[in-house]
Design a protein around this nucleic acid. Structure first.
Lengths: 209, 209
DNA sequence: TTTGAATATTTAACAGTGTTAACTATATTT
DNA sequence: AAATATAGTTAACACTGTTAAATATTCAAA
C-alpha cells in the first residue's frame, strides 16, 4: 500500500515533468506568445485536456518552469563569472551575465517579469524566488564583503535592491521598447549603470552618511 | 470635390476617435487583459469588423491611445508638481507624479511598456514618444539647469536615462511582482531611489570626475 | 426622383485560445 | 474474470483576432 502510494507519486511527478519539459522547450525556442496548452500537450505526447489532471491551469504549469530556468541561469552565470575577482568586480560580472541570460532567452524574461499571476494563492513562493534571484546570485559576494567590513549590511541591502531595479528596467526597455537601439549600445549602457551603482557605494562608505 | 474630400477625412477621423475613446475607457477601467476588438466595437457602437476599416489591426488602434494618455498624464503631473521649487526638487516630484499616474492606471503602464509591437513599421514614432516621455516632462528643468551651468549637458543626459530606467524598473517590479509588498513601501523606495540618483549627480559636479 | 455605382457596415466564417464535462480506454482490486 | 477506480481523449463552450461575402447606406448622374 505504502509502496504503491510512492510509485503513484513518482509516476505523477514524471508526467508533470514531461509537461514542464515541453513548456520549457517552447518557452526557450519560441517565447511566451507562442505557447498554448495544445502545443505543450502535443510536444509532451498527451492530449490537451490531460494537462488539467496535473496542473490547475496553464499558468500554474508555466510558473513551474521558473525553478528549472533559475538553475540553468545560475550555472550560466557561474561559468561566465568564474574568473572574476571577488567583491564588487564579481558582482558586476554576475549582473551582466544575469542580463545576458535573459537577452538570450527573452521568453524567460517574460515568464519571470511580464506574465501576471492572478491566483496569487500558492504562488507567493515563486514570486519570491523571482524577486530574490539576482540577490541570491550575488549573496556570497555581498556576505563576504559585509563580513570583512568592506561594506555595511545596510549599504549592501540597498545595493541589492538597486541592482534588481536597474537590471529589470534595462531589460524591459531594451526587449520591449528597443531602447537602446541595438545590443552593443544596450550592453554598454547596462555596464555603465551597474558600474556607477556599485561605485557610488564605495563613496558612501568613505564619507560619513 | 475638395470640400467633400475634407468632409470625408473629418468623418473618418471622427469615427476613428470613437474607437480610440472606447479603447481608452476600457484600458483605464479594466486594463489591457480585458480588451478585445469586440468589446471596443460594442462600446463604440459599431460591429467588430468595422474597426478594420479604420485601423490595420487592434494593436494599431491600441497604440493610437498613447498620445492621448500622455497628454492626460502631462496635465496630471503638472497639477501635482505646480508648487515644487525649480531644479532638482521639481524633477524629483515630476518623477514621482509620473510613477503615480501609472500606479493609478496599470493598464496604461502595460500599454506603454509591456505590450509588444510586432509590425514595427510605422510605429517607431510611438516608441520614441514613449521612450522620451519622462525626459520631455523634465526637459524644461534640465534645460534651465544646464543653461545656468548648474549641471553639465553630459551629466543631465546621463541622469535622464537613469531616471527612465529606474522608474520603469520600479513600476514593473511593483505592478507585476508585488515588490515591494504594498504601496507605502513602494513609494518610499521610489522616492529613495530617485533622490539618490539625483543627489549623486550633484556630487559628481563638485568632484572632478 | 429614381437608378446605378461607390462606400460603409454587418454577418458569417475560420483558425485559434483556455477550460470543463462526458466518454473511453487502461489499470487495479476484489 | 468481473467490477471498480483511474487516466486519457474527444467534444463542446465561450472566448480571441481577422478576413471575405453579404447587406445597408450614401451619393452622383440621368
Amino acid at each position: 500500500m505504502r509502496v504503491n502510494m510512492g510509485n503513484k507519486e513518482i509516476q505523477e511527478q514524471r508526467i508533470r515533468g514531461y509537461f514542464v519539459q515541453a513548456t520549457k522547450e517552447i518557452l526557450k525556442a519560441e517565447g511566451l506568445h507562442s505557447l498554448s496548452v495544445r502545443n505543450i500537450a502535443n510536444k509532451a505526447g498527451y492530449s490537451y485536456a490531460t494537462i488539467y489532471n496535473y496542473f490547475r491551469d496553464v499558468k500554474d504549469l508555466v510558473f513551474e518552469c521558473v525553478k528549472d530556468f533559475q538553475e540553468e541561469a545560475e550555472t550560466f552565470v557561474k561559468v561566465q563569472t568564474k574568473k572574476s575577482e571577488p567583491g564588487i568586480p564579481k558582482i558586476k560580472s554576475i549582473s551582466i551575465a544575469y542580463i545576458n541570460y535573459f537577452i538570450e532567452y527573452p521568453g524567460i524574461f517574460e515568464l519571470f517579469f511580464i506574465e501576471k499571476m492572478y491566483n496569487i494563492a500558492g504562488k507567493q513562493p515563486t514570486i519570491d524566488l523571482i524577486n530574490t534571484f539576482l540577490e541570491r546570485l550575488c549573496a556570497e559576494e555581498w556576505n563576504s564583503m559585509v563580513l570583512e567590513k568592506q561594506i555595511s549590511q545596510k549599504a549592501s541591502d540597498s545595493a541589492k535592491v538597486k541592482l534588481q531595479i536597474i537590471t529589470t528596467g534595462l531589460l524591459l526597455m531594451y526587449l520591449h521598447r528597443q531602447y537602446p537601439a541595438d545590443y552593443k549600445q544596450f550592453i554598454a549602457l547596462a555596464a555603465k549603470e551597474i558600474d556607477e551603482t556599485l561605485d557610488n557605494l564605495n563613496l558612501s562608505k568613505q564619507s560619513k552618511k
